[in-house]
Write a protein that binds this DNA or RNA. Structure first.
Length: 156
DNA sequence: GCCAACGTTGGC
DNA sequence: GCCAACGTTGGC
C-alpha cells in the first residue's frame, strides 16, 4: 500500500468540507502540474492513504487522513470551457490531466503544524518533499517510515 | 503584502 | 535548445 501527502488550501478543498460530503468522497482535481499528474495517473492505488495538508492558511499543516477510492481517470474540468481549470490544449481523446477520488478517513487527533514538522527536517523527515525549500507539489509520496513517524507525532 | 522559488511559455 | 520573462505558489 502506498502513502501520500495531498496539499490544498482549506477554502478550495478543506477536510471539514470533505467530511460533510455525501459518501465523504470527492475528486482530487484541478492539478495542473506534470509531476503531480504522473503520480495521480500512474502510481496512486485504491486503498492508498494520504495525509491531507492545509496550505496558505493561518496554521499550515497536516489536518487529517484520506483514502484513495478511485484510481487515476481524466479530470473532467479540463474539457469544460467555463471551468476554472479548462485546458484548451487537452481533449477527451488524449486527456492531459488526471484526478483520483478520495474519501475522508479521519481528522488527526490534533493538527500537525508545518513548523513542528520542520523540527524533524534534519532527522526522520529529512527527505519529505514537503519540507524541501521551494516545494510546490500538491501531490507527493510519503515513505512508510515517514508515515509512521508522523502518525506518532499525534500523541505528543 | 512581500518575496523567494519554481514551472511554463515563447522568442530567437 | 537556450534562456529571459512571466505567472503562480505558499510561508511568513
Amino acid at each position: 500500500m502506498g502513502y501520500w501527502l495531498l496539499k490544498s488550501e482549506p477554502d478550495v478543498f478543506g477536510i471539514d468540507h470533505l467530511k460533510g460530503r455525501h459518501d465523504q468522497t470527492e475528486p482530487w482535481d484541478g492539478v495542473r502540474n506534470y509531476q503531480a499528474r504522473n503520480m495521480l495517473r500512474d502510481q496512486m492505488r485504491v486503498g492508498d492513504l494520504a495525509f491531507l495538508y492545509h496550505s496558505s492558511c493561518t496554521v499550515p499543516g497536516i489536518v487529517g487522513i484520506v483514502q484513495v477510492v478511485r484510481e487515476g481517470y481524466p479530470d473532467a474540468s479540463q474539457f469544460d470551457p467555463d471551468a476554472k481549470y479548462f485546458d484548451p490544449k487537452s481533449s477527451p481523446a488524449s486527456p492531459r490531466w488526471y484526478r483520483v477520488d478520495v474519501r475522508y478517513k479521519r481528522h488527526m487527533k490534533r493538527p500537525l503544524p508545518l513548523a513542528e514538522l520542520r523540527t524533524y527536517a534534519s532527522g526522520p523527515l529529512a527527505d519529505l518533499p514537503l519540507l524541501r525549500k521551494g516545494n510546490r507539489l500538491s501531490v507527493m509520496p510519503v515513505t512508510p517510515e515517514q508515515w509512521e513517524f508522523i502518525l506518532a507525532l499525534e500523541n505528543r
